[in-house]
Design a protein around this nucleic acid. Structure first.
Length: 234
DNA sequence: AATGTCCTCAACCGCATGGGA
DNA sequence: TTCCCATGCGGTTGAGGACAT
């Protein structure tokens, strides 16, 4: 993307001390100066490189321009599906360690990956259900499911198996178009599976505890089910 | 065609880190 | 050990293009 140099008006510590420094977008002439200098002399000190190349830029700006745009081998353009998957997987493992992620994607820079994540992959990853916990945090209430709530039994105990089964009653809430994500990130196409599993896994009535979220593709809203329990275990 | 809003991404900033004096 | 400087990193900004009204 070609931009004007209007960012040059941006204030900053470097401009207050070195007003001769140019800021903002790089012109093709500046790019050529930097490329020509580095091709001839190499890189050994960015501050010196900037001056020696005849650029009115700070060394930091020269480094960024070279590393993110001018350096040979830099890929420009759309990310492949394979690259997207790699970024998503690495981000799950590493978090926002963009430079580390970039080192695993030849030709891609940390800045480019970071931008791509925030503009494309973040939303995609969100909709894949990997952010169930985030949804939970964003909810003000935690016992909401299709405007229903689970009443506590006898004050301290949680919902009964029957109550949960009733909650998923297909008559009142068809399962088509629904899937669930449990608090471990596992996805269930059939919400009833999660409910019945608690019984199959050996939890007794009133003893299971879990949070589950449910995405309704019909209305595009996330619904939540909190399965509370008392302290007794099997 | 004009205007407003949203989206993308290059470039900036501040802070952290590492190496040399 | 401390200080200074260059480099690296991640968060943020805002210009300009794309799209909607």
């Amino acid at each position: 993307m070609v931009k004007s140099t209007s960012r040059a008006s941006t204030t900053g510590t470097s401009t207050t001390k070195k007003t001769w420094l140019k800021k903002g977008s790089w012109s093709p002439e500046e790019d050529q100066k930097l490329i020509a200098y580095i091709n001839r002399y190499g890189i050994w000190n960015w501050a010196v490189t900037s001056k020696a190349a005849g650029l009115l830029r700070c060394g930091k700006s020269c480094r960024l321009r070279w590393m993110n745009y001018l350096r040979p081998g830099i890929k420009h353009g759309n990310f492949s599906q394979e690259e997207d998957e790699t970024i998503i997987n690495l981000h799950q493992q590493l978090g926002n360690r963009w430079s580390t992620i970039a080192s695993r994607l030849p030709g891609r820079t940390d800045n480019e990956i970071k931008n791509h994540w925030h503009t494309h992959l973040k939303k995609h990853n969100f909709l894949q259900g990997n952010q169930a916990a985030d949804h939970q945090e964003n909810q003000s209430g935690d016992q909401i499911y299709n405007n229903q709530t689970i009443e506590e039994n006898n004050g301290s105990s949680g919902s009964t198996y029957e109550e949960l089964q009733n909650l998923w009653d297909p008559e009142s809430f068809p399962m088509e178009g629904l899937y669930m994500v449990d608090d471990f990130g596992a996805t269930y196409a059939d919400p009833g599976f999660l409910v019945s599993s608690f019984s199959q896994w050996g939890f007794q009535e009133n003893t299971y505890t879990s949070f589950a979220s449910c995405y309704d593709v019909n209305d595009g809203l996330w619904d939540y089910l909190l399965m509370e329990a008392n302290e007794e275990t099997v």
